[in-house]
Amino acid sequence: MILKNTLLFTLLFCCQSYIVWGQNAQSICPEPIKVGFNDWAPYSWVDDSGKAVGLDIDMLTLVANNLGCQVKFIHMPIKRAHQMLKSGTLDMMMGASYTKEREKYAFFTQSYRDEEIRLFTKADTLPQISIDKWQDIFSLKLKLLVPTYGWYGKDYLQSKAELHNQGLLVISQDAAQSVRMLAYKRGDILIGDSISLPYIANQSEGLALEPLPLLVDSNKIHFMLSKQTKSSGLLQEINNAILTLSNRGALAKMVNKWQNISVAQTPKTSTEEPIQAPAVIDNHGAFNYTGQGQLSR
């Protein structure tokens, strides 16, 4: 009889603990987390089958899996996403650099990856170009191709006017146009994100880019969570998940996977199936990759 009571008490205690844990887990995100994204391969875009794919998509899916949360990826323009984040009709954005202006309406999670800004040239011209410092662009009289939208570091910002005055600055509409101009020798080097530029070059022009040694700039990249979110504990839980996955090496492994994708053989898609998570996508219109700027950059 004593043994039965002991077993019954143990079962009740375990079940009660399980129920409490389940209620807490459910209260973190009782509804799918609504995440806005735009076309910025290889970080996020919609493939031909209508799926949200990309490095940031995969990384957020890892975090969502760790929390037991569902994610609703919503394809939309960047300006609309920021407005919806302010109003609370959107819960989250990906690929965000910290700014004081954004902090007015969003919480920033712990960084989940780094971003590097580098200079690139065509593989066949790499032996003829040596840049160890920013001023080498002026001394070597190299024409720099720069997409209109984006942050390219303090050196570029401070020397932009002088580059223009010396005829060394070639502004392009977007990264894809910069790549085309490099292919047709309208410039000598181009500047941009260390992962996206090689991807865009391979996909749009079949062009192999090589990075130059100089690291122009680096940033920590975060998820932005609307300050209107109904779950006050969600930010901390996301931070905990990022720390856990980082310690396991899962986030670094994901970045490495996308850095090594052979885009020439697998245009518009990953070399692997995207990570499966309880997620849905709300897609407004067909995919039309233009190479334009990252959603939150």
Rank of each mutant, 00 (worst) to 15 (best):
residue 83 Q to L: 11
residue 137 I to N: 01
residue 68 G to T: 09
residue 259 Q to R: 15
residue 106 A to R: 02
residue 214 L to R: 11
residue 10 T to A: 14
residue 230 K to G: 03
residue 10 T to N: 02
residue 146 V to R: 00
residue 136 D to C: 09
residue 211 P to D: 09
residue 263 V to L: 07
residue 213 P to N: 14
residue 134 W to G: 09
residue 29 C to V: 11
residue 56 D to M: 07
residue 49 S to E: 15
residue 136 D to N: 11
residue 283 N to A: 15
residue 188 D to F: 03
residue 196 S to Q: 08
residue 279 A to S: 15
residue 35 V to H: 00
residue 83 Q to D: 06
residue 138 F to Q: 07
residue 254 M to G: 02
residue 131 I to M: 07
residue 157 L to H: 06
residue 87 S to L: 08
residue 180 R to L: 07
residue 71 V to C: 05
residue 149 Y to I: 12
residue 172 S to N: 14
residue 296 S to N: 11
residue 150 G to A: 06
residue 287 F to T: 15
residue 71 V to A: 12
residue 210 E to M: 15
residue 54 G to W: 00
residue 173 Q to E: 13
residue 33 I to T: 04
residue 197 L to K: 03
residue 176 A to Q: 08
residue 26 Q to K: 14
residue 115 E to M: 12
residue 280 V to A: 14
residue 26 Q to S: 13
residue 8 L to I: 12
residue 61 T to Q: 11
residue 126 L to K: 14
residue 47 D to K: 06
residue 87 S to Q: 13
residue 55 L to N: 01
residue 172 S to I: 01
residue 163 L to S: 08
residue 191 I to Q: 03
residue 282 D to L: 13
residue 204 S to T: 14
residue 80 R to L: 11
residue 24 N to E: 12
residue 254 M to C: 14
residue 216 V to Q: 05
residue 55 L to S: 05
residue 154 K to Q: 13
residue 135 Q to N: 13
residue 85 L to S: 05
residue 259 Q to V: 09
residue 206 G to F: 03
residue 227 K to T: 14
